Amino acid sequence: MKKHYRLPHFGAWLLLLCFLLGVSNSRADQQIEITKQDRCPVCGMFVYKYPKWVAQIYFKDGSAYFYDGAKDMFKHVFDTAKYTPGKTADMMTEILVTDYYEVELIDAKSAYYVIGSDVLGPMGHELLPFKDQEAAQEFLEDHKGNSIIRYQDVTPAIIESLDRRG
Rank of each mutant, 00 (worst) to 15 (best):
L127Q: 06
V154C: 07
D68R: 03
F139W: 02
L120Y: 13
S117A: 14
A157H: 03
G124Y: 13
E134N: 07
Q31K: 14
G121C: 06
L17R: 12
S117H: 09
Y101H: 11
T93D: 01
M73P: 00
D132Y: 01
T155Q: 04
K144G: 12
D68Y: 02
M123V: 07
L140D: 04
Y65E: 05
L128E: 11
G116H: 12
L20D: 02
P51Q: 06
I34D: 09
F74E: 01
H76S: 05
L140V: 08
D107I: 08
P156W: 03
L96K: 03
A89S: 05
D118Q: 05
A28M: 06
I57S: 03
K87C: 07
W53S: 14
G22H: 13
D90P: 07
I115L: 15
T98Q: 05
G62E: 12
F10V: 09
C40T: 09
M1Q: 10
L127N: 04
I158F: 02
L127K: 07
F19A: 14
A135L: 07
V47E: 01
T98G: 09
K2C: 03
Y48C: 00
H76R: 01
E102N: 08
M91R: 04
T155W: 02
G11H: 12
L120A: 13
Y48L: 01
T88S: 15
D72G: 08
G166T: 14
R150H: 15
N25F: 15
A28S: 13
F139E: 00
K71T: 15
E33S: 12
D163Y: 15
V47T: 08
Y151D: 07
F59Y: 11
D38C: 05
I95E: 10
L21A: 13
V154H: 04
E102Q: 10
Y50E: 01
H125G: 03
F130D: 03
L15T: 14
Y50L: 06
P156S: 06
Y65D: 05
C18K: 10
C43F: 10
I32R: 14
E94A: 00
F19L: 15
K75D: 13
D72K: 05
H125W: 11
K144L: 11
A64G: 08
F10D: 02
P122N: 09
G121Q: 06
L7F: 08
D29T: 10
S26N: 12
S117P: 11
L140R: 10
Q133V: 14
I148M: 06
A81W: 02
R164Y: 08
F10I: 11
A89H: 00
Q152W: 11
A12G: 02
Y48S: 01
E102W: 02
G69V: 09
I149Y: 09
G22F: 13
V103W: 06
M91A: 10
Y113D: 09
Y83L: 07
K75C: 10
D132H: 12
A111Q: 04
P156F: 01
A70Y: 04
K131S: 08
A136V: 05
D132K: 05
V47C: 04
D29K: 14
D118R: 09
R39G: 03
E138K: 09
D118A: 08
Y83N: 04
F19K: 13
H143L: 02
A157N: 02
K52C: 06
Q31S: 13
K109T: 15
W53H: 15
A12P: 04
H76E: 01
K52A: 15
L128S: 10
T80C: 06
F130I: 04
W53T: 10
Y5T: 01
R164W: 06
